[in-house]
Every structure is written in structure tokens, then in C-alpha cells.
Write a protein that binds this DNA or RNA. Structure first.
Lengths: 402, 402
DNA sequence: CGCAGTTTGTTTATCGGAGGCACAAAGCAA
DNA sequence: TTGCTTTGTGCCTCCGATAAACAAACTGCG
């Protein structure tokens, strides 16, 4: 009896890694896929065929415009136009947002977010899930999962929000549970995940933005209030043993600084957030408007002309640099990405921030860590979608079979 | 033509994981090996047989004294008595030490260490390697590699010591290179590795000591001077992108504290090392003797009787707790192990230290991280051997074929 | 235009490393 | 002694990959 193989007998184990390469834009052609996966052309071909039959990618046999190349041109691998999507949602201090995100971190559709947030998590999540579900129905696409970004540490593995104080939600709110029930009520039969917004932004930047290729990526960002941090190690989010890692807001950056609710004083949280910048510049913040917007305006409009604004900015940059240097000494990252107000501070005076970090970190070499602004729009939202895509990236056949 | 399989066709991929289980004491029998590896009994049997023919383990078919068990008793897997060893060496402020370490972290032989350390790395390493090579010749065993522990950050991947100031060595000394040439001169044809002593101690404690089973293990320890830290994530040492992570000595634990050579003041390094404890208690340290020994004596003999000693101890414990809490907020470990003087401080008043850490870490849950003293003798030495054993654990056949 | 050279995609045979299963072995309990 | 349970081993099969040969598509050159 000879071996008669009819169905796919190759590329099963390489399917996940291959999809991840396509997802992160590192596999433009089958030939690249072959070398990146370290498999034979036969296997890579089978993998690409399987991803095609799964409806995830398309193989474009038109000549790929490669000018100076020899040999037979490789077919282009492209993300399928009508492939499945992840449902992404974000809740922050000033409202919420919803979107559909396809493979490759592509935002396919967005819903205009409401600008008020209720104190009841179930109420808010019900609204945002309803908005997302409407997008999904309109698109007619298949949904592979749903992700939610919240401005709070999220405990693993129970999925509770530990300090959602910027939302006025109760501490310990079972966010994942509420999210999944809202999904079920909206008729979305897909698994739900949730995570901290800065963590998810870091994940998105690592896969699709300024963090690509970094082995040890540190992200620090302000939201509207407070400071968050995240670490991506070898492509995986490091959230610590219980999801509480990188709570960097309470590093001391000024021993004589203003008191913080944590009991200490001069914490990164209260010294480098929008309110700190405004107060340092002698402005009385308008409580009706967004503090983040007011701080941005200060940096854009007044930085060049107003000496007080410039001095305040310099002080806040120095504090941020001190905090980053402390993190560099502990984590030794190979890249740092800043978001929110911190990104604007970096852009206002990149040399000053880099000099402070270099001076205060112990080793010259680690002091010269690249510090970059984040590059993705809505990176928390894209990161929330990454959470939902992860099972598909891990095992496409199993995740898409259901 | 039928399938005729003569040689080993099973357990090739499971060989490394199986050896690691034996190495860490988690595979007492073949039956346990089967469940731990998640393979069939046939595969586990083949793996055990292969490890036996490699001379690494022995299979003892005498009934294992299991009292209340039913069914056929499983054969015991034991580490071979005359198996290969790793050559381990440690250099510290007061001298050096050498040993042979077998599988399972067992110290097979030790050399009495010299008590003076020359300022020339090549001189010191030549002596310690000579001592180790003598041990190796006497034992008649096979050597699978050599590891060296130094009290300095070691840069990856070049293997240079960045701050060996406690040895009065030049910063940036190419320690690994010197070590391997010394090995070659001593006639040891085995690969040489080196690492930071606290990092290696953490690795040893994770595999064979108080850190077993921890997913996110944080170690903090004093040597004779200064403070070091280490993080073991999922069984692997986390040394950062360039080997410089966990330089925890310069966390601020007292803004009004004594000045540190790093330029700041009140660093963990100068506030919780042996000298700090002695000075806080009003003692004038004897520069001729070991500061660590004098601090130990203070804790053992004077703590219960001398109010000044007690007050000084409490202060230093509080400072240490503050530093640990900062690390807990950033790293969220699930276990903390303390070594050197810090271990003694923990043992002097465990409740006080735990209370400080819990109070100053942001989340009650992460505040209740278990804090334990280290349990292994010579853990840096055993850790250095782990470095040498690692290639064998990763791929026993390839590493032992050469 | 035709041909050599280069790189890519596909087909077929084969191989390596595991799982499945039946059976034997070694203990305990009745 | 007879069951019952658990462990160790041999034989077959299956899955997922490699290897090698071949076909296809393009460049460059005479």
C-alpha cells in the first residue's frame, strides 16, 4: 500500500508563525516567508495556500515591481480585503471609542465615540459594545474576538480593573466579565479580552508602529491624568505575575515635589502629567476642558514665546528623564516609546530629554537607548484588537474552526 | 519494504526538557517524567534510556519505597554518580572560590579559596582556573563547561565587566575572554561563560533552592559592599537587552540620605549595605575585617540587647522595604528572595520588612508577595555552573557529542 | 531572437519523531 | 490464587516536515 496523501499534510505547525509574519508586515512574498520561517519552499507554499483558503490572505500573482532583481518574481502576499476582523473598544476619561480592526492592525471602521462616561461599568460597556456591534453588522465581516482597553491595571487572570479611578468606576470591577456579557447581549458570539490601555498601546506599537523589531520595548505614556508604563519582552506583553507590573506612576522624581495620593511626594504620576505642566507654567486649568488638550496647546503655541511655559516644560522634561533613567537602570530596554503628553514633551525638546536620561542612567551604553514618539493612531484600540487576534495568531486552524 | 527501525526514533525533542526535569529534581521516576513531559510512556522510556546511555542518569529498578501506592512501582531516576561536571568559579571582594558542580546543582568538590585578590584580572582568573583544573584532574570526570561569577554587571554579548569596582579591576575588563584563555592555558577544553554573581545566585535559587516553581522571581542581595538584583522570568534569567538590567542599587530610598557615588543621595546601595548598618548603629567599622561579618555579628549578638543596634536595624529594614516595594510596583514578582545582609535583615524581623513592603506597594495583593531568605550554600557558584550546564540542558545530544 | 543564469513554485518520494494500542510485568487487596 | 491497578516495552501507524527533481518566470547578453 503506497502513501496517498490527499489533504494538507504540511505547514500545520508553521501556520501560526507565518500568519504572525504577515500580520506584522514582515512577509511580503512567499520567498521571504520561506527564509523567515526557516522551512522549505514546499512548506511555505502549503502554508500560504492554507492561509488563503482560510480567507486571511490573498496571493497576487501579478509581477511585484522589483526593479533590480533577478530570477522569477515572487507573488505578493496581501491581507485579504474581506477577511475577518476583531472588535476593538476603548474607554477613557473623556468617553469611549469603538472600531473594527483587521489583520495587520488595519482599522477597518470606527464609531464616533460618546463623550460622557457613566459611573456604571455595565452601562458604559453596553453602549460601546452596541456601537461596535453595529459596525460589525454593517461590515458583514466575520468577527474573531473582541478586545477592550481601559485606563486601569487589569488583574490576571480574573480580569478585574484594580484602579479605574479616572473613570470613577469601583475598584475591582469585573471588567472582563461585564464585557463578555455585554457582547453576548449584543449578539456577538466571540471571546472577549481586556487590558490596560498603555499596555495595549505598547503591544500595538511593537507589532505595527515605532516598536517593531525591539527585543525589550519600554513604553511610558500619559493619558488625560496619570502615567502608565508597559514592557514588551520578545514580542510578548510583560504584565507581571498578576497583571500589575509597570505601575511606574509612583517612581519618585522629586523628593520635595507635590504630594501624591499614594502617600509619597514627587511621584512621576503627579509631576509629569498634564495638570503638572499647566500648574508649573502658572496656568489655571479649565476643569471643563480636556487637560491633555490644554497641555498640548501650551507646548504647541506658548513654548516658543512664553518663558514661563518654556521653564515649566524644561522642569517636567527633567522629571520625566529622571523617571525614565530609573526604569532604564532596572529594565535595560533597547528602545523607549513615549505617548500622550510625554510624546509631546519629547518632541518639544528631544535633546534635553535624551541628555537627562543618559546622564542619570548608570551606564553610558544603556543611557543611549533610543527614545521615540509613538507613531500609530489609536494605538490602544489597535492593541485591544491584538488581544483578540492573539488566539488566531497562535493557532489559526483551531481559532477559525469554531 | 516495511519499516525497520533500529536506532532511537523517539524522545529526541523531549530530551532537553526531560533532563531539565531531572536536573531540577522534578522527575523522580519515569512515571512522573511521562506526565510532566506530556508524552506517552513509550517516549518517556526512550528518553530515560537515552539519558542513561549518555551517562547522565541511572535507572534504579529496586522498588521505590512508596508506602500507600497501588500498582507496579516505578523505577527511580537518579543522577549518575560519575557523570560529567561543570567547572564553577567565583571571584569576590575577599578572594575567590572554585568547585565542580554536577547535574542537579550538586557540589562535587570544592577548592579552598585564596583570600587576597590581585588588581589584575588575568592573574586572579589564572589562579582560580588552575585551582579548578586541579579539582577536575583529581576527580577524573568529564567537564561540560565552565562558569564564572563576578561582582559586576556583565555586558551581553561581549562578556565585559562594567563596574568591577569592588575588585579594583578596570571597568570594561573583557572577563569572558580572559576566562576562556585561562581555561585553555590550564588544558580545559570546554566553553567558558560568565555572569553577575547575584544574577547567578538567583538562577541557582530558582532551580534548586527557595525559588523553585516561581514564575517571576526577584532576588536582591548584598555582597560585601553594594546591592545587586536579579529577575528570573519563566525559568530564564532576565538580564535586559545588554545584560545591564536590575541595577537596583540606585533606587532612592531616602531623599535626605547619604550621598552616593552615582551623584544622587539615599540610594539603596549606600543605605542598606553592611557599612550603612554599622554606621547607623554608631559603630566604627574595622577596615581590616570583613564588613559583612561585622554586620552579621551586630544582628546576631547585639540586636536583642543593644537599643542602638535595634533602632539601626529597623531603619535599614525600612529602607530596604521601600526599595523592594518600588521594585514590586515595577516588576510584580510572585516571589522575592533575599541574600547576603538582606537575608539577615529579613530573618531579624520578618514581620517588619513584610509590613513595609505591603504598605508601600500599590496593591494589597501584590503587597503580599512571599519574601524568603535564600537557602543554597554557595548559590553564586552553583549558578555559575548552571551557565555551563545550559547548553547540555538545551540539547543534550549536541552538547555531549563534541 | 535565443540561450544561459537565477530565483520561485510545485510535485513526488522519503524520513524522523512522535502517538495508539496490545501485552507483559510488578506490586497490593481480598 | 485471583482480581485490580499502575508501569514498562514492542509494533504499527500517522503527522508534519525535508529532499530532490522539475517546471515556470524573469533578466541580461550576444
Amino acid at each position: 500500500m503506497t502513501h496517498t496523501r490527499t489533504r494538507l499534510d504540511r505547514g500545520r505547525n508553521a501556520l501560526g508563525p507565518a500568519l504572525e509574519l504577515v500580520h506584522t508586515g514582515r512577509a511580503p512574498t512567499r520567498a521571504v516567508l520561506t527564509t523567515e520561517l526557516g522551512v522549505t519552499r514546499a512548506t511555505a507554499g502549503a502554508v500560504a495556500g492554507e492561509l488563503q483558503t482560510l480567507g486571511l490572505i490573498t496571493v497576487d500573482s501579478r509581477p511585484s515591481a522589483a526593479p533590480g532583481s533577478q530570477g522569477r518574481p515572487s507573488h505578493r502576499l496581501a491581507i485579504a480585503d474581506n477577511g475577518p476582523v476583531a472588535l476593538a473598544a476603548q474607554v477613557h476619561a473623556d468617553g469611549f471609542r469603538a472600531a473594527l480592526v483587521g489583520l495587520g492592525g488595519r482599522i477597518v471602521a470606527t464609531a464616533p465615540g460618546c463623550m460622557t462616561v457613566d459611573a456604571d461599568p455595565a452601562q458604559v460597556l453596553g453602549e460601546v459594545v452596541a456601537a461596535a456591534a453595529a459596525l460589525l453588522r454593517d461590515s458583514g465581516r466575520r468577527c474573531i474576538g473582541a478586545g477592550l482597553a481601559v485606563p486601569s491595571a487589569v488583574a490576571e487572570p480574573d480580569g478585574t480593573a484594580l484602579n479605574p479611578l479616572h473613570l470613577a468606576w469601583p475598584a475591582g470591577a469585573p471588567v472582563r466579565e461585564i464585557f463578555t456579557t455585554c457582547l453576548a447581549e449584543a449578539g456577538v458570539t466571540a471571546p472577549g479580552f481586556c487590558g490596560n490601555d498603555v499596555n495595549l498601546a505598547a503591544l500595538a506599537e511593537h507589532r505595527h508602529g515605532a516598536g517593531q523589531g525591539a527585543q525589550h520595548l519600554l513604553c511610558v505614556a500619559t493619558g488625560h491624568r496619570g502615567v502608565g508604563g508597559a514592557l514588551v519582552l520578545d514580542g510578548r506583553l510583560h504584565t507581571g505575575s498578576a497583571g500589575l507590573a509597570l505601575e511606574v506612576g509612583h517612581l519618585t522624581v522629586d523628593p520635595q515635589g507635590r504630594p501624591c495620593h499614594c502617600g509619597s511626594r514627587g511621584c512621576l504620576d503627579v509631576e509629569t502629567d498634564p495638570l503638572a505642566l499647566l500648574e508649573a507654567a502658572g496656568r489655571t486649568p479649565d476643569p471643563a476642558g480636556s487637560l491633555l488638550d490644554q497641555a498640548h496647546h501650551l507646548l504647541r503655541a506658548d513654548y516658543a514665546t512664553d518663558p514661563a511655559a518654556r521653564a515649566a516644560t524644561d522642569t517636567v522634561i527633567d522629571r520625566l528623564g529622571l523617571g525614565l533613567a530609573g526604569l532604564v537602570n532596572i529594565l535595560n530596554p533597547d528602545r523607549i516609546i513615549l505617548g500622550g503628553l510625554h510624546r509631546r514633551l519629547l518632541e518639544a525638546d528631544p535633546d534635553r530629554l535624551r541628555a537627562v536620561v543618559e546622564e542619570r542612567s548608570l551606564w553610558g551604553r544603556s543611557g543611549s537607548v533610543p527614545i521615540l514618539p509613538c507613531t500609530l493612531d489609536h494605538n490602544s484600540l489597535v492593541g485591544a484588537a491584538e488581544l483578540a487576534w492573539q488566539p488566531v495568531l497562535d493557532d489559526p486552524l483551531a481559532a477559525l474552526a469554531a
